[in-house]
Nucleic acid binder design. Structure first.
Length: 595
DNA sequence: TTAGGGTTAG
């Protein structure tokens, strides 16, 4: 280690070299502070001290993320007499990437106001990254985009990827794609991965996989980051065959299955119904963090493997892995699935004792737990006592649970809140209309229909998909756009006959178009998964399992239809909805617990 | 000095 008297005799270049090599050996914040103290003791001349501070600031940026690291970075910056663009850039980069981009953008604006130094492409790339952090700052990002053009900054690959990523994070895939297409012909791996990730995030699995194939055709080799997006696209879509193919591809190509990719694989297998395969991926991991444990626990919970989910949670705590809100979503929903009210309440206290502030989803899990256990009053008091304003999901949970009760005040209160919060969501009208119909309150049913019309609310945004030969076919209500819709309609008619013979008719009436327009509107709300199942029957033969993913809840009346189809066509049907898996074999449904 | 990734209630 250099002594102060030695430092005094060294030329500036040698001192700078010493500073750089000292900082290169720092691999964390503590080491950095130690190096800072040592540099201070050297009594560096003014210019070299400024050099040391800017290098310290840059190193600080590489260890960014905590509040203390950002305040340290600010202190360093404030000590630099004439900060260069490099210093501004490092400060922008050093400010935490989580939360709001406000701090990083304030530095960017301060730089603009100062007039000198001018922002360069590094500045812009860092500022864009700050805007891309969760939750992304769309407006600020667009402003940066416009400002950069006004200043005549040449958009290099890094800035373009920054923009592309920003739009992808904001779920503005069309804008992201425009940036992607505008990039020079030699798009690199990062740009391809960011665009695939953008498609994956919004559930556009065909586009994500299509782009993945284009990327390979362009001779760009994917890495583990690319594969995370591809796998998570499969998970979102419930595309098991594709997911399995992609996993085999990862193995064949020798792509490193790291922490993130393992977590994505666990999630994909769990969401596609292969929980044991998910468990094998989990068991093979050498390192497991909060997200990996959470993915596994949530996966077990959605499969109704409650004991396992809670057992994994205990193991996680024993191994001193800190759970987060998502972990507790898994734990609480596991409790809800088997009516473990007391356990659920205990876990709720555990969560708070760990200093985890419950999220809206966590409150939702508790309300669900109480409702499913028939503790409607407790659920209602819980909702009323929430320190944050309950969202529509919570009111809907309460409303569905109070359907078969005579608790008029809960029904009224929840309905009112629901229509206030989401006056344009057709799901609410259908739910309320069905609820009143079940109580033979026909005046209220027609009142709902009228409200729906007055508010110009017409259809349910139901969408179901089925994967056939590596392509995901999507169906929405009353969708005629599928190229094979004629053939699908023939299958539907055949199903209709079988269902009618079995003594069921309500849904098929809608398919056959022999009901009034108003009834059709309500009945058609469950139409999409029937189109998907019919397509599955058309395109595959037994023993092929028909797997359908539905983005809305799979309603009990559809269960009857699925049972009849499974028996009559000798098919196994698995429908995944937002709540869980529903498996139909030989006319029976193995899903024990649904509304 | 820079860009891309995993878990989320009904």
């Amino acid at each position: 280690m250099l002594k102060p008297h030695e430092a005094a005799t060294l030329p500036r270049e040698a001192l700078e070299e010493h500073i750089v090599s000292l900082l290169r050996r720092c691999h964390g914040h503590l080491a950095l502070r130690g190096a800072h103290a040592r540099l201070l003791r050297l009594g560096l001349p003014r210019l070299t001290a400024a050099f040391a501070l800017s290098k310290l600031l840059a190193s600080c940026a590489t260890f960014r993320g905590t509040a203390s690291s950002s305040s340290y970075a600010r202190k360093l910056f404030d000590q630099i007499p004439d900060p260069t663009a490099f210093c501004y850039n490092s400060l922008i980069r050093a400010l935490p990437a989580s939360g709001t981009p406000a701090a990083a953008l304030a530095v960017y604006r301060r730089m603009l106001r100062a007039g000198s130094p001018r922002p360069n492409s590094f500045t812009l790339a860092f500022a864009l990254k700050a805007c891309s952090a969760a939750p992304p700052a769309h407006a600020e990002g667009r402003q940066l985009h416009a400002q950069a053009f006004r200043q005549g900054l040449e958009p290099g690959a890094y800035v373009q990827t920054g923009l592309l990523n920003l739009y992808a994070k904001c779920e503005e895939v069309a804008l992201a794609r425009a940036v992607f297409d505008g990039m020079a012909g030699d798009k690199n791996l990062v740009a391809w991965s960011a665009m695939i990730g953008g498609y994956s995030r919004v559930g556009m699995v065909n586009e994500a996989l299509g782009l993945f194939r284009e990327m390979q055709a362009a001779g760009v080799e994917p890495d583990e980051v690319t594969m995370v997006s591809v796998i998570s696209a499969c998970a979102k879509a419930g595309a098991l065959d594709l997911g399995r193919w992609v996993h085999a591809y990862i193995d064949r190509k020798g792509i490193t299955v790291d922490l993130e990719l393992s977590t994505a694989l666990i999630d994909m297998y769990a969401k596609c119904g292969l929980i044991e395969r998910a468990r094998r991926v989990f068991d093979a991991m050498v390192e497991r963090d909060t997200k990996a444990w959470s993915a596994m626990i949530v996966g077990l919970a959605i499969h109704g493997l409650v004991e396992d989910a809670l057992d994994y949670f205990s193991r996680m705590l024993e191994l001193k892995v800190r759970p987060n809100n998502v972990t507790f979503i898994g734990v609480l929903s596991a409790c809800a699935h088997s009516g473990l009210v007391d356990d659920g309440r205990r876990y709720w206290s555990t969560m708070q004792n760990l200093g985890i502030i419950p999220s809206m989803e966590n409150y939702g899990c508790m309300v669900d737990l109480l409702c499913r256990s028939g503790l409607l009053d407790d659920a209602y008091s819980f909702v009323i006592g929430m320190p944050i304003s309950p969202n529509s999901v919570i009111w809907r949970t309460l409303l569905v649970a109070s359907k078969s009760s005579n608790r008029i005040e809960i029904v009224e209160g929840a309905s009112k809140k629901l229509l206030e919060l989401e006056p344009l969501n057709p799901e609410n009208y259908v739910l309320l209309s069905n609820l009143y119909a079940s109580k033979s309150q026909w005046d209220r049913v027609s009142c709902m229909r009228k409200k729906m019309k007055d508010n110009n609310v017409t259809a349910i945004a139901g969408c179901s998909s089925i994967e056939i030969n590596g392509y995901l076919h999507k169906f929405v209500v009353s969708d005629d756009s599928h190229p094979e819709i004629k053939e699908i309609r023939l299958v539907l008619a055949d199903i209709a006959d079988r269902v009618r013979r079995a003594g069921h008719k309500p849904w098929i009436a809608a398919v056959l178009h022999d009901v009034g327009e108003e009834e059709k509107e309500v009945a058609l709300c469950e139409h999409s998964e029937r189109l998907a199942i019919a397509y599955g029957l058309l395109k595959t033969k037994p023993p092929h399992v028909i797997r359908v993913v539905k983005n809305l809840r799979f309603c009990p009346d559809c269960h009857e239809v699925a049972k009849i189809i499974s028996k009559s066509y000798n098919r196994e049907i698995i429908v995944r909805d937002r709540v869980r898996f529903h498996k139909f074999t030989g006319g029976s449904c193995s899903c024990k617990d649904f509304w």
